[in-house]
Design a protein around this nucleic acid. Structure first.
Lengths: 215, 215
DNA sequence: TTCACGCTGTGACAAATTTCACAGCTAGAC
DNA sequence: GTCTAGCTGTGAAATTTGTCACAGCGTGAA
């Protein structure tokens, strides 16, 4: 079994390699990729082991080939089909970001309970009423659901999407969802992340002050 | 040294306890909190060790007291003062979410380079021109910076904020920032998270299909 | 008061993850 | 062709993180 952390880093490498390729880099060493990704060179080599791509001791990794291998590993060559549920301010922000299509994320449909928001398109994405979620999703081949509803609604939304056959979610609501073991949830809780950053900020800040005092 | 994961879980407990308290729960056992947070009871007890709060073998943890201890540990009783840089669609979404103030995050000021956006308020938060970042931040006591600018701008923005004395960041741009060891960065890369969820969705989905075939 | 149940707190253990360190290889120099 | 510098790939060690299991204790029952 391959770990979450490894997958996160691999997606990151993919992004970085795309940037490098557009800058005309044809070959790259593990330590260079490591610098870009802010990890150790050994970590890069370990990670690349799992996708089976081999570099060359003298020239490093061929950027194009490595990207190809990553694409194949992730099987995302045609983009990632998703649906978004909850067209609040965050939902709209995500629509506006992803519908302009600079990434390989495709939002195929959006849903909301509010009749004011449904029936029209936002950033070019059709917003359907929540009641038609099941039938609409059944017609599409969706890999991942984006949950941008209030915390109180999140559980019933994932339940419905799981019933429609979706196995992966990114949950922006500040609750922990209850899902069967065949379903993956990535929690993106902004508040929690800010609290975390604030905690370490404080601790680093205090440490810095102490050191300055001792000098 | 206390780990990032522990801090994440502690902030989560805090949120859950707040909910429980508003529901009138006065005492809670480690296994109950564990169920809410989707972790093991042992994990909860271990985590609570670090803040020094002790429960009672017969009645569990006192919700109010525990919350108090967590507050004290995080020293967030007055809220977390932040600034936001980059008033694009995501920046506006965060402003609209946090300025309504149901959390302890306080966005004290926003910044953008676009003259169209500066000089006015969005969701009740004043948007300043980027050129006045340094002086404005110096006047405030800010713990954490929220980076919602395009990837190409992110590095120069954090550099400026670090120079203004900020030690913690939540970075929404899809780049890895280069910061000194006295600065903490929490990366919230939505694209990367969706890719990760999509990968595991696919793998779980395939596994489920296989199992059904074998039956 | 005494007893017993079932929880907490924690040392010891197990698993996961990262880093080390080095054998083996390959392209370029000569 | 031969040599060499410096990389990759990978076992093994180290570190980090999570779990187990149980001694010890506090509360309510009798």
């Amino acid at each position: 079994m391959i770990s979450e952390k490894t997958i996160s880093r691999l997606t990151n490498y993919q992004t970085l390699l795309r940037q490098q390729q557009s800058m005309g880099t044809s070959h790259i060493f593990s330590h260079q990729l490591a610098d870009l990704a802010r990890v150790t060179p050994a970590q890069v080599r370990r990670d690349l082991m799992v996708i089976g791509y081999s570099g060359n001791p003298r020239t490093g990794y061929h950027v194009g080939d490595l990207q190809e291998s990553l694409m194949q590993f992730f099987a995302f060559s045609t983009g990632i089909p998703t649906v978004l549920v909850g067209v609040g301010s965050l939902g709209r922000a995500l629509l506006s970001y992803f519908m302009t299509g600079r990434s390989n994320i495709r939002i195929l449909a959006a849903f909301d309970t509010d009749p004011v928001k449904t029936g029209r398109s936002i950033s070019g994405c059709r917003v359907h009423p929540m009641t038609r979620l099941r039938e609409t999703v059944a017609d599409l081949t969706v890999t991942c659901g984006l949950i941008t509803v209030p915390g109180t609604e999140a559980q019933k939304v994932v339940d419905a999407l799981i019933a429609s056959g979706i196995h992966g979610f990114v949950n922006f609501a500040p609750v922990r969802l209850k899902v069967p073991p065949t379903v993956f949830v990535e929690n993106l809780d902004v508040t929690s992340s800010i609290e975390k950053a604030a905690f370490f900020a404080r601790s680093y800040s205090l440490k810095t002050q102490e050191e300055q005092t001792h000098e």
